[in-house]
């Protein structure tokens, strides 16, 4: 396989690179958004909510990375991640507006 590196079409390589970027950026972004949102919304004392959210964030990120590479097309992976991120960001915005004075 690697000995055919020279023959790998550019398009395929770009697709792989895009997935890497999506997995890393999207995975971290969603994990970060989820941590922020859960820290504010978990029905626990503040410090507990932050600790719990931070603890699970890395499992979440690993899951998203696996998901991105498992999805059949890059487009579907991008849409799924974008939708999730949008939902989380929207929730976070609402919650933060709610607690802002």
């Amino acid at each position: 396989m690697a000995s055919h590196v020279g023959t790998t079409p550019l398009k395929e390589r770009a697709a792989v690179a895009a997935r890497v970027v999506l997995a890393a950026g999207g995975g971290y972004g969603i994990a970060a958004l989820a941590t922020a949102l859960l820290s504010l919304t978990l029905p626990l004392p503040r410090s507990e909510a932050v600790a719990a959210a931070t603890l699970v964030s890395f499992a979440l990120m690993a899951g998203i990375v696996v998901l991105v590479f498992a999805m059949r097309t890059l487009l579907r992976a991008t849409v799924t991640l974008a939708a999730t991120a949008l939902a989380l960001a929207g929730g976070l915005w609402l919650v933060m507006r709610g607690i802002a004075p």
Binding site: A32, T35, A36, S39, R46, A49, V50, A53, S57
Partner: peptide, 8 residues
């Protein structure tokens, strides 16, 4: 992952 601390 400092974002919980950032928001809360």
């Amino acid at each position: 992952m400092p974002w919980g601390v950032t928001t809360a």
